[in-house]
């Protein structure tokens, strides 16, 4: 039986999946609470995650959404699984902030989308492993 070794997922895949997911989350949450407030929440999440993953501050947050372009640039110096972990943590942190703000009211609205994205990520991970 061939030995299964862990292979790094290409960074562009990670960035693409999380860019889509963050965009989706942004649209849904911004509909509920507005871009200005969401910008504050996202910046709070970035600040908190940056303690463990300093490169996450390369994410650009505006009232219109999140851009991962700079993160893609500087993420080349990082193992892609670390970038993935950082982005996963960012979303977890955002969710915990949203939960702290309104219990499960906002989270409920987001749950289906997040599950969908998790499935896609799992597929990519599976394909990346031999």
């Amino acid at each position: 039986m061939a030995k299964r070794t862990r292979k790094e997922i290409p960074l562009q895949y990670v960035i693409a999946v999380y860019a889509d997911l963050l965009d989706e989350i942004w649209q849904r949450v911004a509909d509920l609470i507005g871009g200005i407030t969401l910008q504050v929440l996202m910046n709070t999440a970035v600040r908190r995650v940056s303690a463990a993953y300093p490169f996450i501050t390369a994410i650009t947050v505006t009232v219109d959404g999140v851009s991962l372009d700079k993160l893609e640039e500087i993420g080349r110096d990082q193992p892609s699984h670390q970038v993935k972990e950082a982005l996963q943590n960012l979303i977890t942190e955002l969710f915990s902030i949203l939960a702290a703000m309104s219990g499960d009211v906002i989270i409920r609205e987001l749950a289906p989308k997040v599950r969908e994205a998790e499935t896609r990520l799992c597929q990519i991970t599976e394909n990346g492993e031999q």
Binding site: L32, T37, V40, L41, A100, M101, S102, G103, I106
Partner: peptide, 28 residues
Amino acid sequence: HITFPLVAGGETIGCISLASPVEGAFSA
């Protein structure tokens, strides 16, 4: 509960919160 930062001019100038001892008091 629902809590929001009071944001103006890109700065957080405060916070506002509604709270209830009743489960599910607030909707989307």
